[in-house]
């Protein structure tokens, strides 16, 4: 509604992510209603919410992978298209076929493809770059394994390395902690902290409410809309959690159902 030229928000010029008035609908059934938040630079942000709250959709909408109905998304104060190089994405582990005939190193190299350029083959320094990222997540010795021979945690680390190798400034991670072993979880947390130290920002979809306090410094409670967002110590409390996980907004669901019905039967 308002142009982002509000001068009092001077730091919004460098804000890694600014989402305004975002509504996303699948087949006219709204998944996200009027989502609005801003991420401060250099923070670790957890997105928390029940199943079907639209968490993955939010990340995909940010990257333009799903069409948005209304709203604007600014990544480093430009549209995502222009800031792509600064964004690293870690998709859900289940989204790919792990039987695919590539090695872990190949997967990590995929993060560099844009940098290598169309049609050009990867060169040696790209390989070393990729290996360095794998070392960072502790899987350098598995570089030449086919990906189905990695354990769940190692697969997740491979994806993480693929995002790290891009040397992005903003990382979007879709449940990196889902079904990983304890040591991987620890490694990922270490990496997140390392990123923060370098002044980078990470937005992480997270399921385990117990660890939100220790892993993140900023949290977004999401259930079709933003229930609360802000520093963990301020907003991550029982009241907000109840609002997020408790009472469903039956009327909102009803009206979106009516929208669909109407669309069909008119």
């Amino acid at each position: 509604m308002f142009s982002s030229s509000d001068k009092q928000q001077d730091d919004s010029d460098s804000a890694p992510l600014l989402v305004e008035d975002l509504t996303v609908a699948y087949h006219r059934k709204p998944v996200l209603w009027d989502v609005e938040f801003q991420i401060p630079k250099g923070s670790l942000v957890g997105i928390v919410g029940p199943n079907g709250a639209g968490k993955s959709t939010l990340l995909k909408a940010i990257m333009g992978l799903v069409p948005i109905a209304t709203g604007s998304i600014k990544v480093f104060n430009t549209p995502y298209r222009k800031a792509r190089a600064k964004v690293g994405y870690v998709p859900q582990k289940e989204s790919v076929d792990w039987d695919f005939p590539v090695t872990a190193l190949d997967v990590v190299m995929m993060g560099l493809y844009k940098q290598i350029g169309w049609c050009l083959p990867a060169r040696r320094h790209h390989r070393t770059q990729a290996l360095r990222a794998m070392e960072q997540v502790g899987i350098a010795d598995l570089a030449h394994r086919q990906i189905s021979q990695l354990s769940g945690g190692q697969q997740q680390r491979t994806f993480l390395a693929r995002a790290l190798v891009q040397n992005a400034d903003l990382y979007l991670m879709d449940e990196p902690f889902a079904a990983v072993d304890a040591s991987t979880e620890k490694a990922i947390v270490e990496i997140l902290r390392g990123l923060k130290k370098e002044g980078k920002t990470a937005i992480v979809i997270h399921h385990d409410l117990q660890t939100v306090n220790s892993y993140f410094d900023h949290v977004i409670l999401l259930n079709m809309r933003v229930v609360a967002d802000g520093p963990v110590e301020e907003v991550f409390n029982q009241e907000n959690l109840n609002k997020t996980y408790g009472g469903r907004l039956t009327l909102l669901e009803e009206v979106s159902e009516a929208m669909r019905r109407r669309e069909r039967s008119l």
Binding site: W33, A258, R262
Partner: peptide, 25 residues
């Protein structure tokens, strides 16, 4: 009240939903 959307922003949402709202709703 219930969704907690800022008053300055409720209008466009309501503008959309009003067309689908029946007496019961």
């Amino acid at each position: 009240d219930q969704v907690g959307i800022d008053p300055s922003r409720v209008h466009p949402q309501a503008e959309q939903m009003e067309h689908y709202t029946d007496k019961k709703m």
